[in-house]
Design a protein around this nucleic acid. Structure first.
Lengths: 199, 199, 199, 199
DNA sequence: GATGAATGAGCCTTCATTCAT
DNA sequence: TATGAATGAAGGCTCATTCAT
């Protein structure tokens, strides 16, 4: 018999995560303090602790957030027949999720999560898994493209998928150093690189 | 001890940096403690503090370490006439500096430095500058290649350079998630992408 | 513990100040450690820090304590018509506040506060202001006494007030060196010096 | 067989004391560091330590410095026949030693020494003794004046001497709070108070 | 359930002192 | 003797976590 409705609990939990996300994006996992989170969420220490048993739990929850956009990106790509067009579509979905001006907090959280992964196995697994699915999709698209004759046969699908995912993630990083980077221009540059794979 | 020789002083400083590098690579800038560094270096707090005035100074020194290999990479590329070959050469130099098994600590430090850059302007400037020079070199090579007719004219050199640098850095990241990644295979994949730029 | 009553909070704050006062009187501002204060108050570091943000804040709070007795002394004097009697009354109030056996801690704190004032502008302002009001009152009494003809006209009220305040403070100091100093005898000596001002 | 001449040793010792005096006047005994003294004196730690075995020794040496002027003051007073004139002479000697603009460092050192005396028995003894001699001289002058009929018989010489010494020391303190205090005016005010003792 | 005051281990840093050269 | 690099105990302060109310 819960004292508060499940809906209210979920809302609370979500509020805490929002506050934590802001704090972590601002100061990093290690430097952000729980007192920051308490203040940012407007909730008491005890309350936050009743939703998350430790700071690490909060970090894991944030680091583990699966960005819906990636799933969308994969689905969008799956609908395309032409393999390179499918890859470009996936790429565009990723870019519009991570390279826009509005996505700055997401970029910061991505980077600090990657870094945190070095020191926490759970975060590591979560970060690694997050790039496995896109990579797997790219491998499938490339291999299928090779079967249908749309992609050059001498391409190592595994390595090429790694290179592509790396480029996408690298651009997220690059956007941090160079916020003025032109998304359309860089999208076209990537298109041009990809075109080299066509038979 | 009376005045120490300058050579010995440099050695000490270098020893401290080595110890700090190991500690930071292991635990991150924020989580690594100076006590760790004292223990790892076998020196006392006071001694370390006579070489570096604060933990932040130590962080900056590590984060600012210019990797000689990058300079070498740029020089190697400068010697090549063919633009794409020059880029491939640069790429290989970077890969052999960061993607080998032995370079694991370097990869970890790169990632934590990038993350730290989000919270420290000095580290930010250092990290950003570290990728500006390679990028500038790539722009120059591409533009020159367009003038000599070796590179397609419809390529936006700036954006393409960003994409390339991103791919190189992204692979550093990728190697962290997938240590088994084959360097030769990924090198060839990158070669194939680059070949698409040829006229 | 949930929200503490304001009364209890004030009590805590007061307890901490009491403990700090004892520690500072015993060892001085610089030599007394906060660990001492924690132990003396029976509270933890975190708790004390939630009431005072730094050691300096604690020092300022102690150094700034306005001794109610001084105010009382001024009011007592204000009621007297005869100027020299008014001054003697003020003097007696000050002496009974600072020169009794029970006031030893107060004397010690006065001296260390005066010394601390040399190195901290805020403490300086506080200490200086602490003697301005008595001095101002003395100037007013003397000038008024000159108008009514009770005090010699050739007296420089400002300088005389300085000399008087100095004598009062100096006796506080003297009582430290010579705890056996007789309060009645010294009070009479001061009376005799003051009598020289009468017309 | 000393390696350096005794004269040179004395000079060194004196240089160190000068540096220490400046440092202590600037920051207080507790806050001034020996590294400050090393820098201010231009000598090494080892060298300073060969002249003073600890920081406390240095503090004691500074706190114990007998200001020649006081001796001069006493001698000057001894030459005067009229008791009140003798006291005024002594007072003037003290004032010109401690209340001039140039004596600021001396005032600061006096105050920090008095404060330090609270926490160090040796400094206490030194400070207390420093005011005993003037006080004793005043007692002698007053008693002799009473015998010769120049001073009122109902004066308690002991208490009056205490009050006088207190006034002199208090004025030193007062000059710290009010550097603009007029020395001639305050001297005259003291004269006027003293005149009240005449028969 | 919620509160927020309180805890205390542990961090960064300083500085009196030592001692090999 | 003189040097100054090195030591390391200890200080001020923070913050994840707990628990009485």
């Amino acid at each position: 018999m819960p004292r508060i409705s499940e809906q209210r609990r979920d809302q609370r939990r979500s509020d805490i995560l929002d506050a934590a996300r802001r704090c972590f994006a601002r100061a990093g996992f290690a430097r952000a303090t729980l007192q920051d989170v308490f203040a940012e969420s407007g909730l008491s220490a005890g309350c936050v602790y009743s939703y998350f048993q430790s700071k690490r739990d909060l970090v894991l929850a944030i680091a583990d957030e699966r960005h819906v956009e990636e799933r969308v990106a994969l689905e969008a790509a799956a609908a395309e027949k032409d393999p390179l067009d499918a890859i470009k579509l996936m790429m565009r979905a990723i870019f519009s999720a991570y390279l826009t001006k509005a996505a700055e907090e997401k970029r910061r959280l991505s980077l600090i999560t990657w870094s945190e992964a070095l020191f926490d196995e759970t975060v590591f697994a979560s970060a690694r898994d997050g790039m496995r699915e896109p990579r797997r999709a790219l491998v499938a698209i490339l291999k299928h493209g090779q079967q249908t004759g749309a992609v050059r046969k001498n391409v190592n699908a595994e390595a090429m998928a790694s290179a592509m995912v790396s480029m996408f993630q690298g651009l997220l990083l690059h956007k941090i150093w160079d916020p003025a980077m032109s998304l359309p221009a860089v999208t076209e540059a990537c298109d041009q690189l990809l075109e080299g794979l066509r038979v």
